[in-house]
Design a protein around this nucleic acid. Structure first.
Lengths: 188, 188
DNA sequence: GTCTATAATAGGATAGAC
DNA sequence: GTCTATCCTATTATAGAC
């Protein structure tokens, strides 16, 4: 899509911004069109399936972004602490130091029939696996590594919600600071 | 409101069920009327301010519930561990072991102009204060107590989101199990 | 206090020109 | 590939009977 007003990458990033902020139901097409800088009909040209397809495309976009910027580094070379710190920096940037909500949170509300639950669950499981791998290399058993990986994800999601509710970004910063001690405690 | 089809308490609890599940934008009046068992016009009789007033009333209802069932016990008599366990049991019940989302989470999405942010922030701060009091009585300094209280809230919100995303209630159970070690660790 | 009926608007989606 | 104009439905909200 070279000769276009905005690149697909740009469109997806702007869609991400709307959905993570307002959730699926809260994001109207008028709002989306305004934010993306295209008319509604143009959005339907890009996403014939409508809002549903837009949200799914954003989830895939985030999944690809995570794979490249978070999961590959986590699985890569280097010592566990260095890899975890690389992830933490990406997470800080992705959530703008706690100013932005998690798409997984805002898109997972609604009934169990919610069509976004499955891709969200898959993405979170992939993240958890990559974290557990790092914990294992640090010396933890498989079971303990998984428990610590879960605590990391719980902490990230928790600080995002609490920071938003309290309107206090320091909650997010403190949470990020605690992640190394959670995943890679000194006593094995 | 004695001679009525459903008590105000019932109405508020059913409104709570809808809003915590679907969020504010995701909860339509048709859905609400259906769930509450009243027609839309009857809801407007009870809440002339419409959906906005309904959500605010639910927040007040939850705040009152928390004050009675969570905060008063936390501030009450007995040793810190006993009081914390009382809270944990209430939290387990309130979130149906992780099946139900937190209203603070679902109602806090949207811009900073969101009118629910302030009551939500007030409620979370009150909860944090009560938790910090317990930690202080266990021997922590004011600063450390506040940090631990924050970790408890982060863990609760985190496990709710992660359990929902992974569709795995055990995440919630494990989180509840860890709360005593977070607020009242053995080494002071 | 609850209802049926309806108004008024916003929402998602499409047609067809350029 | 993007636009303007439009359609249809769902949504919020109100009027007025009982």
């Amino acid at each position: 899509m070279p000769p276009s007003k905005v690149s697909r990458e740009d469109v997806l990033n702007r869609l991400l911004a709307v959905f993570r902020r307002h959730g699926f139901e809260g994001a109207s097409l008028a709002m989306i069109a305004d934010e993306v800088g295209l008319q509604k009909a143009s959005l339907y040209h890009l996403f014939p399936g409508g809002k549903d397809e837009m949200a799914k495309a954003v989830l895939e976009h985030v999944h690809a972004f995570m794979e490249e910027k978070v999961l590959v580094p986590l699985r890569g070379e280097g010592d566990p602490a260095t890899r975890l710190h690389a992830m933490i920096e990406q997470v800080r940037a992705f959530y703008a130091d706690g100013r932005l909500s998690c798409l997984f949170d805002t898109l997972s509300v609604g009934g169990g029939d919610n069509p976004f639950r499955k891709p969200i669950g898959d993405a979170m499981n992939a993240w958890m696996d990559a974290l557990a791998l790092v914990a294992r290399e640090h010396g933890a058993t498989a079971a303990v590594a998984r428990q610590r990986a879960e605590r990391v994800l719980v902490t990230i999601q928790g600080v995002l919600v609490v920071a938003r509710c309290l309107d206090d970004l320091k909650v997010f910063s403190r949470g990020m600071h605690e992640l190394p001690a959670i995943l890679l405690p000194a006593d094995v």
